Simulated assay, not measured.
Amino acid sequence: MAVTIREARLEDSGAITTILRALGWSEHIQQQTFAETQAQIEEWFARLENEQTHTILVAEQQGQVVGYLAVHWYFHLMRGSDGYVSELFIHPDQTGHGIGSQLLATIEEEARRRGCTRLILMNRRIRESYARQFYIKHGWEELGDAAFFSLTLPATSR
Rank of each mutant, 00 (worst) to 15 (best):
M1V: 14
T4V: 15
T4D: 14
T4C: 09
I5S: 09
I5K: 03
R6W: 03
E7Q: 14
R9F: 08
E11S: 03
E11A: 02
E11I: 06
D12K: 04
D12V: 15
D12N: 08
S13P: 03
I16C: 01
T17W: 03
I19F: 06
I19V: 11
L20W: 00
L20S: 00
E27I: 00
I29H: 05
I29K: 11
T33P: 06
T33H: 08
F34M: 05
E43F: 12
W44P: 07
W44R: 06
F45K: 04
A46F: 06
E49N: 10
E51K: 08
T53Q: 13
T55R: 15
T55L: 06
I56V: 08
L57G: 01
Q61T: 06
Q62A: 08
V65A: 04
V65K: 05
G67M: 09
G67I: 13
L69Q: 12
A70R: 05
A70N: 14
H72Y: 13
H76M: 05
H76V: 09
H76N: 10
L77M: 10
R79P: 01
S81V: 14
S81T: 15
D82V: 05
G83A: 03
G83P: 11
E87M: 06
F89S: 15
I90E: 01
L104M: 13
A105G: 13
E108F: 14
E108G: 14
R112P: 05
R112C: 15
R113Y: 01
R113W: 03
R114D: 05
C116T: 10
T117H: 05
R118Q: 05
L121H: 00
M122T: 11
S129M: 00
A131R: 15
Q133T: 11
F134G: 11
Y135M: 01
W140M: 00
E141P: 07
E142M: 08
E142V: 11
D145C: 00
D145M: 02
D145W: 00
D145I: 03
A146R: 13
F148A: 04
F149N: 15
S150K: 06
L151T: 11
L153W: 00
A155Q: 13
T156L: 08
S157P: 07
S157R: 11
S157H: 10
